[in-house]
Amino acid sequence: MKFAVLVFPGSNCDLDMYHAIKDELGEEAEYVWHDTKDLSAFDGILLPGGFSYGDYLRCGAIAQFSNVMSEVKKAADAGKPVLGICNGFQILTEAGLLPGALLRNKNLKFMCRTSELVVENNNTMFTSQYAKDEVINIPIAHGEGNYTCDAETLASLKANNQIVFTYTNDNPNGSVNDIAGIINERGNVLGMMPHPERAVHELIGGTDGLALFKSIVKQWRESHVSHA
């Protein structure tokens, strides 16, 4: 399976993402610069964390108009897995690929530590290798991860099982419903503030993030193996 790791000016988790895919997962990965106009060669799209365009105006606001974003929309429409982590999540909400928005953390602090997440929905192409309600340890590092949306959107997120990850009792940012990650209605675009790509090896403090990437690959293999 071939992943595109998008690189915007100011991305800084692209190397971690590349390493997770290439070295820990053993799949193909390629860095893709933000002005690329074709992503058709890739099976999955990864939007890494960082501070694209210096977080000017709002996090993710400027990146949403990069050339590559119309290609990301095409990939999402085609049902390919699109995963946005941290700043990648912010970009996906700004681009309208996911509902809601991310505000400044409630305590105004940049939070950098390991967070405990609950897998609320393991019936997705990103979480099938977790157990339902499994508690996993994934690092966070963000100043604007306070997910918000209107009551109507929240109700539909709940009704459609689109809340994929929540924080346990130590919500670091004040997000509504303790939301840490959500998926689109179709189930192929996931955005989350925590960094699974930083939890892929015991040497760096844990491997709880690996199952997320393995889930994507498993789903892809199962749907493509008949063409092999």
Partner: peptide
């Protein structure tokens, strides 16, 4: 389109 995010 850009200058504000009408969600928030």
């Amino acid at each position: 389109k850009l200058l504000t995010n009408t969600v928030i």
